[in-house]
Amino acid sequence: MQWRLSPLVGRLTLMILALALALPGNAQAPSKRERQLTQRVDQVYRLFVSGEWRKVEAFLTKDSLDLWAGQAKGTITSFRIEEVKVAPDGKQADATVQVTFNVPKMPMVPFTLPQKSQWLYQKGKWFLKLKRPPPVLELFKTTRPSEVEVAPSPLSFAQNPIQLPVPQPDAETVVKIFVQNMTMGDVTVEDLRTTCSCLTAEMDRTTFHSADRGVLTVKYVGPYPPAQPTMHVQATLSPMMYLLDLPVVFSKE
């Protein structure tokens, strides 16, 4: 006996096949906001590789700027975006990035770890939100086996924070601090500056060979208590592009 499909059944079969082919599979294309977020994550991590710290500010939420300004920073060598997840409301998201970096005491042994960050969608753009505590996003930490800590400065300072004696009226206050290069290579001090016009900082040398020592001189001229509640001495240490940030406080002792 031969079976023959009626024309109606044949047309229905073709329609079902066409619909099946048109339906999306399990893997969906990234949404517009996911694509935007991926681009923003890529852009900010490129700055972490190059060490262009001031450009990072354009990617931060307003309430993250103070946290960012007060943190020590260290570059990474490479990264790979592993995952971005946008919340159903489209206003919050999480990103996971595999980051590769070197530890100062083991420069020939690169480490790769996943790092997560939180992003907020504001005014048509994604912005990175730093968390407290810890006071700095894990992006700006370095990891040794079995522990996580803020990247240490290549230069060791006898005082950190810098302690100034309380100034006398109409007099300047000066303190000299010993500095030593704790790395096996050369370290160059660039763009030495302070965050207050009442404060000046000078180094007796700008290039430190391994184990070299030097002196940092910090001078304060102004009223007490100071008009600016927080003061810092900052510099960029090359070639590792480390952002040095030394708080300055007054000591009554």
Rank of each mutant, 00 (worst) to 15 (best):
Gln2Gly: 14
Arg4Met: 15
Val9Glu: 15
Gly10Lys: 14
Arg11Gln: 13
Leu12Glu: 08
Thr13His: 05
Thr13Cys: 13
Leu19Lys: 06
Gly25Asn: 02
Ala29Gln: 08
Lys32Leu: 12
Thr38Val: 01
Gln39Pro: 01
Arg40Cys: 01
Val44Arg: 00
Leu47Met: 02
Glu52Gln: 11
Glu52Ala: 09
Leu60Asn: 03
Ser64Thr: 02
Ala69Leu: 03
Gly70Trp: 06
Ala72Phe: 03
Lys73Val: 02
Gly74Arg: 07
Ile76Val: 11
Arg80Pro: 05
Lys85Gly: 00
Val86Met: 01
Pro88Asp: 02
Asp89Gln: 00
Ala93Glu: 01
Ala93Asn: 02
Ala95Val: 01
Thr100Asp: 01
Phe101Trp: 11
Lys105Cys: 08
Pro110Leu: 09
Phe111Leu: 13
Phe111Arg: 13
Leu113Met: 15
Gln115Glu: 11
Gln118Thr: 10
Leu120Met: 06
Leu120Glu: 11
Tyr121Thr: 02
Gly124Gln: 06
Leu130Trp: 10
Val136Pro: 01
Leu139Ser: 14
Lys141Val: 08
Lys141Gly: 09
Arg144His: 08
Glu147Ile: 11
Glu147Arg: 12
Val148Met: 12
Val150Gln: 09
Pro152Val: 06
Pro154Asp: 03
Gln163Leu: 11
Asp170His: 14
Ala171Ile: 04
Val175His: 05
Phe178Arg: 15
Val179Ala: 09
Asn181Ser: 13
Asn181Ala: 13
Met182Ala: 15
Asp186Arg: 15
Val189Asp: 03
Leu192Asn: 07
Arg193Met: 08
Glu202Arg: 10
Met203Thr: 10
Thr206His: 15
His209Asn: 14
Ser210Phe: 14
Leu216Met: 08
Leu216Gln: 04
Pro225Arg: 00
Gln228Leu: 07
Thr230Asp: 15
Thr236Tyr: 12
Leu237Lys: 06
Ser238Ile: 07
Pro239Ala: 12
Pro239Thr: 08
Met240Phe: 09
Pro247Glu: 10
Val249Ala: 08
Phe250Arg: 04
Phe250Gln: 06
